[in-house]
Each structure stands twice: as structure tokens, then as C-alpha cells.
């Protein structure tokens, strides 16, 4: 993967760091024990995480080619495997490790793209 210049990297890290600090500081700036955020903000905050995580799952496989060989099969098979393994064992380490090895084997040995 290509990376950008050092100055730009530092800029990107600074932005992500500052915005992260900002989101964590917000409640301490504006709310106290009896002053709560609006019902809408609370609703969005609670309902958003599963939607965002599903979006990020798709984002992480955005370079797969569904209409061209290997048709995203390595990713689909491996995700299916991770989910199955996780429902069965509920162990993050096993699911992530075995899933990654599965994908690496699939792209390196079975679905080889020339």
C-alpha cells in the first residue's frame, strides 16, 4: 500500500486524535448529572453502533470484485467462517486469527489472481 508524505501523515494522525478527544470530552463540557442530552441525540447514539459496524464491515471489503474473478468469494467464505466460529466459540482471538489465516490461504493458494 502506498502511504502519503510524513507531514501529511502527522496531519492525519493529529486530526483523528483531536476529533476522538473531542467526542470523548463533549459530555463533560455540556452535560452534568441532571442535564442530559436531547432524546434524539440519545436515540441516535444508542442505535448507531450496529449500523456503523455493519458499514465498516462492507468498507473493509470494498476492493473485492463481485463481478469479476474471484467474485469476492475469498472474503465471503472467510466472513462466513468467522461468523460461524464466533457464534460457536465466542472467542475474539480464535475468530480473528483463524479467519485471517483462512483468507490468506484462499487468496494465496486457491483463488490466485494473476
Amino acid at each position: 500500500m502506498q502511504t502519503t508524505t510524513i507531514a501529511n501523515l502527522l496531519l492525519i494522525i493529529t486530526v483523528v486524535s483531536l476529533v476522538t478527544i473531542f467526542t470523548r470530552t463533549l459530555p463533560f463540557l455540556f452535560f452534568s448529572g441532571d442535564k442530559q442530552p436531547s432524546k434524539y441525540v440519545l436515540y441516535i447514539g444508542n442505535i448507531l453502533p450496529p449500523a456503523i459496524m455493519a458499514m465498516l464491515l462492507i468498507y473493509s471489503i470494498r476492493f473485492e470484485t463481485p463481478f469479476k474473478y474471484p467474485f469476492g468469494l475469498p472474503a465471503l467464505i472467510s466472513i462466513f467462517f468467522v461468523v460461524l466460529l464466533h457464534v460457536w466459540k465466542r472467542n475474539n482471538l480464535i475468530s480473528i486469527l483463524v479467519g485471517t489465516v483462512c483468507y490468506m490461504l484462499l487468496v494465496q493458494v486457491i483463488f490466485i489472481v494473476k
Binding site: P50, L57, S60, S78, I96
Partner: peptide
């Protein structure tokens, strides 16, 4: 991807 699949 595996990490996000686990969280999902």
C-alpha cells in the same frame, strides 16, 4: 474484516 465481522 475479521475484527468487524466479530463485532457485528
Amino acid at each position: 474484516t475479521a475484527l468487524f465481522a466479530v463485532i457485528c
